[in-house]
Nucleic acid binder design. Sequence first.
DNA 1: TGTACATCAGTGAACGCGCGTTCACTGATGTAC
DNA 2: TGTACATCAGTGAACGCGCGTTCACTGATGTAC
Lengths: 268, 268
Amino acid sequence: MTAIQTARQRARAELTSEIKAEARRQVAEAGAQRLSLRAVARELGMASSALYRYFPSRDDLLTVLIIDAYDALGESAERATAAAAGAGADARGQWRACCTAVRAWALAHPHEYALIYGTPVPGYQAPQETIGPAGRVAAVLGGLLAGAFAARGAGPAGSTIARPGGAAHPQAQASQAQDDGDGSGPWPHDGLPLAAPLPPVLREQAATVAAAIAPGVPGPVIARALIAFTQLFGMISFELFGQLVGSADPADAFFSYSVDQMADFVGL
Amino acid sequence: MTAIQTARQRARAELTSEIKAEARRQVAEAGAQRLSLRAVARELGMASSALYRYFPSRDDLLTVLIIDAYDALGESAERATAAAAGAGADARGQWRACCTAVRAWALAHPHEYALIYGTPVPGYQAPQETIGPAGRVAAVLGGLLAGAFAARGAGPAGSTIARPGGAAHPQAQASQAQDDGDGSGPWPHDGLPLAAPLPPVLREQAATVAAAIAPGVPGPVIARALIAFTQLFGMISFELFGQLVGSADPADAFFSYSVDQMADFVGL
DNA sequence: TGTACATCAGTGAACGCGCGTTCACTGATGTAC
DNA sequence: TGTACATCAGTGAACGCGCGTTCACTGATGTAC
């Protein structure tokens, strides 16, 4: 158990990743349900039974691929967001960058996208380990909201990421996560009233989400962010799965427009 | 070819629908990819080869099930909307009824929902016949918008479906489908500016959609309706596919809130 | 009304395929003394 | 440093399964004269 790996350990690590790579290749090419241990083994020039030294079953291999896909998507979103921030983009610009990266990744890896956001494999139960990676995109967007909210709450002096046309409300204070009441606060909603107060159940769910990934953001904004989040993935799924044929296909313009509208919607 | 069916014709019609029913049962229970011609034949007590007298291939049987699923969902949405209208609901109430019916159907028939809105079966190409049934829900919502828009454009006298709190703009006229410019018109947007004019591609796509299912509704409203539409199905898919676990699950409150927000968003 | 023929439903065997997983085994690598 | 033993990777055959589809066939139903 030293830092120096034995030859065996190195070989094992290498083969493990070769198996994953080949499996990923098959999923990318033909979809998750066509993933076959025998085909992977064949391609790697080994007996199919040998794979069982590395993965206890097909489902376990699938789980690893799912985690990898979530991670790849999450990393792509994080990178794009950070790059936008580095280039001086405000919160809205970063939101755009994140959403655009998610779509770009999905278009580039449609079967891997389907693996994580499409129909779940029947009988397959996502294990605990997938939860973290699955939340990375949400964490990025939640972080953006939290950052923007904190900056605005701090007043004009701290409003480096305030939207050019957006009217900050300097009189308000930054709220905490439990301040998820009616959403009246420092948030410029582009004139859109956050009218409907959250029903109790949603209020608590929003508080949980806020505590996890968007501290300080009030409940109604979280609720809207959830709406924007489901819209984002709904739109991408529709595009990939052919549901936009006959309406917004090709979807570039619609996507771009939607992202803008949803950024308005959440108050960025 | 008379109206009177021969015994053969009656038997054929009956068996055809029995096959479909059994196939539907299997899909409902285990998902589309588990649908097996042999299992269907087994359950019906006949040789598997006999099915080929009724359906030329497994894919054709699947296509029929897909069409049936679209039709069942569409009919459910249409019924609920009509019932709401019959009960005196305004356009917004009908919109709610339609969305709620879609979700209810999806929750009651998760595998059939996945069959039509989940990951497409690899290699399967949806044939022309699916297009009509696939558009029924969209047609309902488009019709609601068109009706509401026409009523408001006609002024207060015709505003039988005007929203109680909604401010109609009596000075404006009902626009035609090609009046899809900046969205300034008789539409009360709850203070939300339809600021961003549509880019050319989206503008044309919106005009096509409007011409098909929502005549007279301006482009920006169509674009927002498309956003609401993708949000609706994105949210339902997330709920069914387990993506809301840890945030808005159970999703009843979130769903209801979202429908309200999106009704505001499209100006109902 | 009766007969000859065509149409069609349904059968059962077979083709050819691929899959996940298990198991007893060989031989190489690593480890403890 | 060398030896005895334990660990582990990989093999190849086999189990048991299910699938979609084809084909030659039998026998019943329908039709034309």
